[in-house]
Write a protein that binds this DNA or RNA. Structure first.
Lengths: 145, 145
DNA sequence: TTAATAAAAGACAAAAATATCTTTTATTAA
DNA sequence: TTAATAAAAGATATTTTTGTCTTTTATTAA
């Protein structure tokens, strides 16, 4: 098992890619994104439609259309993407899948996992969509393969 | 998304339950386990067959048969269960799903996730199958709902 | 205003995960 | 040695996730 669903992995990588490509104010097409992050084009299209509906990214149809990100959204945290796609069970769910797990009715791993979940949550809350742009431009970071 | 697959959640809870029920040297039937951890009986049977084949737990057929855990296995780490069921991608895989992600070709979250994965790995490596037995007996910990 | 472009939307398909059903095998006790 | 018990094994079913195909809608430029 991975931390995120495949859908969420594609979503995060795609948003990074769109951010990177639109710092100059441009728009980027679905083919370009799918190639840029090595994902199935039509599946990614569905994912981006969803993120677009939820306001995380923007799009325009027609010639010279495509996806882009509004400047303010560059400072939104990655947790917004994760919550939109995978929900918040990664941050709040019980590690052993118990619905009623809590401080007063803990599973054996409750405290240990609380710590880990908090760490993941904090990481995704303090990391923004736009913060890797310059490193991505410089080719120091990878979004594919 | 949860940290573990549903299968793995059932597996860990079941192993805890079997450990708990066999400290006295007894054996525990699949119905008992499924009820005790609130899981689908026949699906759990499949999971336990697998864990049994892999030597994590033991079983005997026939009257008074059932599942049990050899005393030495009580000190095995939880990571053995997780690896048997979910593989090791939780410990070593890239957070964004990139096959080639590494120190020299990192994804944007490489270092942050390395830290988190290491923490999860360490937690599961240092936590043993039998270490919650007394708390489980005392009813301080929950394995169901 | 028409043709071309590109995303949106809806339907469908394949694969993987989860769950169930049936038959077989091993063990025990009478 | 027979009947009862309980797990193993194999087949099948359902649900969820992932992926694809087709049609529609919005936008642009000529």
């Amino acid at each position: 098992m991975a931390i995120f669903s495949k859908t969420c992995e594609y979503a995060i990588r795609a948003v990074f890619y769109i951010a990177l490509k639109t710092v100059a104010g441009g728009r980027v097409g679905i083919k370009d994104i799918a190639t840029g992050i090595d994902s199935p084009e039509l599946y990614l299209a569905k994912i981006l439609q969803d993120l677009s509906r939820k306001g995380l990214i923007s799009s325009v149809k027609g010639p010279h259309g495509g996806f882009f990100i509004e400047p303010p959204s560059l400072s939104r945290p990655l947790s917004d993407i994760v919550e939109a796609v995978d929900g918040d069970s990664l941050f709040y769910g019980c590690g052993l899948g118990l619905k009623q797990c809590s401080e007063v009715n803990p599973c054996p791993l409750h405290n240990e996992f609380k710590d880990i979940r908090d760490r993941i949550h904090k990481l995704l809350n303090t990391t923004t969509i736009g913060e890797f742009n310059s490193e991505l431009i410089d080719g120091l970071l990878s979004l594919k393969k």
